[in-house]
Nucleic acid binder design. Structure first.
Length: 555
RNA sequence: GCGCCUGUAGCUCAGCUGGAUAGAGCAACGGACUUCUAAUCCGUAGGUCGCAGGUUCGAAUCCUGCCAGGCGCGCCA
């Protein structure tokens, strides 16, 4: 609809130019919008105002010239008006909206797809929680945002790979090993001093117990230095298995799990550091090796090898991001918690230093989640091991409700996640509001079958019966879906789909309460309305699938 | 002190990357189930878009400066 109208308007501009009414042939892009107020028509353009400068004419004069030259071949326009400073408002002939319905039926689960990605290989890395403890709610949000963004990008024509980066190297892994080792000693009846720096959660005790049952007590009787790494590996593997299972429960499956340790094992990190030294990008100061990130806009240089000879997290991160680009990704997206924002300049610097364009690297900073119960904060302290895990949340409120809540807000704004609210099955909790649309329509379809209603023989002319304002409103909502998808993909903002679906759901519920779909005494009308609501159902299902949320047949 | 993010109805948030009279849900109040699922709908009420300037035909949106809140600023990850 918009595109057809845009072409018509541009044609009008050329025609007016040929007649000499418009002096310049330099036409700006036609932007069509849906006015907020219905009295301003179905679609509106500000082009007359945009062109005022280049044409050196009053906007309203330009608008008049355009309208006079409109050639509405497809019969889309019922009437036009010039309003305010020079808006051109178009009132679309109601039946002109109908063809979108057959498009939806024809394209089915492909309706709304676009090709802004042009098969560009893009990688999105998310969650990437350290394997030192279970996933919590914050990871859930990152997971929902990352996974849904991946779905949307894929739907927008990108070639998407989802990756999980496992920080299975460095100090926190050592700490994990020590924690398990000490808890194991406790199990053997020894008194140990369990340091505050160790992981306090009960899951550490469980891991120690598991290891004891599996391999016997030998390992816990060894000297600490010999026991740490075996303990750490065992625990990390177990924890990763657990995270993998939790993520699957949450509907997330990664294409690849990438081990940080593998970058060391292959010698890539060392090789990179050596290469940077030769280029003068890595230098020695105060006994440590520094990377000259400040050459690339970071506020200061960063250590890659510490005085004690150990590499920092940043060292492997340079190699990791370089590796991503070497694997052929043209666009690399990291989803991080907002508390890591200070890290962005140095990774951007690293990307640039390794010879890639920092604009090809983007970070989605997901703001923190505040977990509440009945409006009151749930105490959470990672150190002490008191926290609500992602798996607890999924068990308590369900996967669909959890995902919907995570995606019901721009990732950039902090989120209150109220466990009690998430369980409510009212309008407080819009996931059910949207799913209910799907279930209601499924129910109508069941009734058609059960009552033996003969609704075959649909013909496009039946659609003429869809002429009430609720019909048109609903259809117009359906035409917006491709735009919502495109915007969600362009800006990597899944919440746009969420809000779109809530709007569509509202339009449907209104429709449902106002109009009966199945009218035994008017089969053409029944066929038309079934055609309409089935299209709605397809779009709802389609949109929910982008969010990773199920579309139930009944509720 | 510096940097990033946020400030919109009593509460939780949208606002299509500059458009016309700023929108939803919840909470409040009043209505609608012998009819396809009331997990729904309809109506009423509720606003100086943090404050002050600037940019222009036009600003919640862009720029600058303040104010308030959150988060960062390690040879931690």
């Amino acid at each position: 609809m918009k595109n057809l109208l845009k072409i018509t308007i541009l044609a009008a501009a050329s025609a007016a130019h040929k007649q000499g009414v418009l002096p310049s042939s330099d036409f700006s892009e036609v932007i069509l919008e849906e006015p907020k107020a219905e009295s301003h028509g179905d679609l509106s353009t500000n082009i007359a105002m945009q062109m005022a400068k280049t044409q050196r004419m009053a906007p309203r004069k330009i608008a008049e010239a355009l309208i006079e030259n409109l050639d509405d071949k497809d019969g889309l326009i019922e009437r036009t008006e010039i309003a305010g400073p020079g808006f051109i408002n178009f009132f679309i002939r109601p039946t002109a909206w109908h063809p979108i319905l057959s498009t939806i039926h024809k394209q089915d689960d492909k309706y709304g797809q676009c090709d802004i990605g042009k098969a560009t290989p893009i990688q999105i890395e998310f969650v990437s929680s350290n394997p030192t403890g279970p996933l919590h709610v914050g990871h859930g949000r990152g997971g929902a945002v990352g996974d849904s963004t991946a779905n949307i990008l894929s739907f927008c024509g990108y070639d998407v790979q989802k990756e999980y980066y496992i920080n299975d190297s460095g100090r926190q892994i050592q700490t994990l090993g020590i924690s398990v080792y000490l808890r194991g000693k406790e199990l053997l009846g020894k008194t140990v001093d369990f340091p505050e720096t160790c992981y306090q959660g009960d899951y550490i005790k469980d891991l120690a117990k598991e290891l004891l049952e599996k391999d016997g007590k030998d390992i816990f009787e060894k000297a600490e230095a010999d026991a740490i790494m075996p303990c750490a590996r065992f625990a990390a593997d177990k924890i990763i298995d657990g995270m993998r299972a939790d993520l699957e429960d949450f509907g997330i499956r990664f294409d690849r799990w990438f081990s940080e340790q593998s970058l060391y094992d292959s010698g890539k990190v060392d090789a990179d550091i050596r290469a940077f030294k030769e280029k003068g990008l890595v230098y020695e100061k105060d006994g440590a090796q520094w990377f000259a990130t400040s050459n690339y806009g970071d506020e200061k240089d960063r250590v890659v090898v510490r005085q004690n000879g150990q590499t920092t997290y940043f060292a492997s991160d340079i190699t990791y991001h370089k590796d991503k680009f070497e694997r052929g990704f043209r666009k690399v997206i990291d989803v991080w918690g907002a508390d890591h924002h200070g890290y962005i300049p140095r990774v951007k610097a690293a990307v640039e230093a390794t010879g890639y364009n920092p604009d090809q690297f983007d970070v989605l900073l997901v703001q923190l989640v505040n977990l509440l119960r009945a409006g009151k904060p749930v105490a959470m302290s990672t150190r002490s091991g008191e926290f609500v895990t992602l798996s607890d949340v999924i068990k308590e409120v369900g996967r669909d409700a959890a995902r919907f809540i995570f995606l019901s807000r721009h990732y950039d704004s902090p989120l209150d996640f109220d466990l009690d609210l998430a369980k409510k099955k009212t309008n407080d909790n819009p996931v059910y509001y949207v799913q209910y649309v799907h279930a209601r329509i499924a129910s109508i379809h069941r009734k058609v079958v059960n009552d033996g209603l003969n609704v075959s023989g649909f013909s496009p002319s039946d659609l003429l019966a869809l002429d009430t304002s609720e019909d048109i409103t609903l259809i117009k909502n359906l035409t917006r879906y491709p735009e919502a998808v495109k915007a969600a993909g362009t800006f990597m903002e899944p919440h746009r789909i969420t809000f779109y679906l809530m709007n569509l759901a509202a339009a449907f519920h209104t429709y449902y309460n106002r109009h009966r779909v199945l009218c035994e005494d008017d089969l053409p009308l029944t066929r038309a309305r079934l055609h309409l609501i089935t299209a709605v159902q397809k779009v709802i299902r389609n949109g929910l699938s982008l969010l990773g949320i199920s579309a139930p047949e009944s509720m």
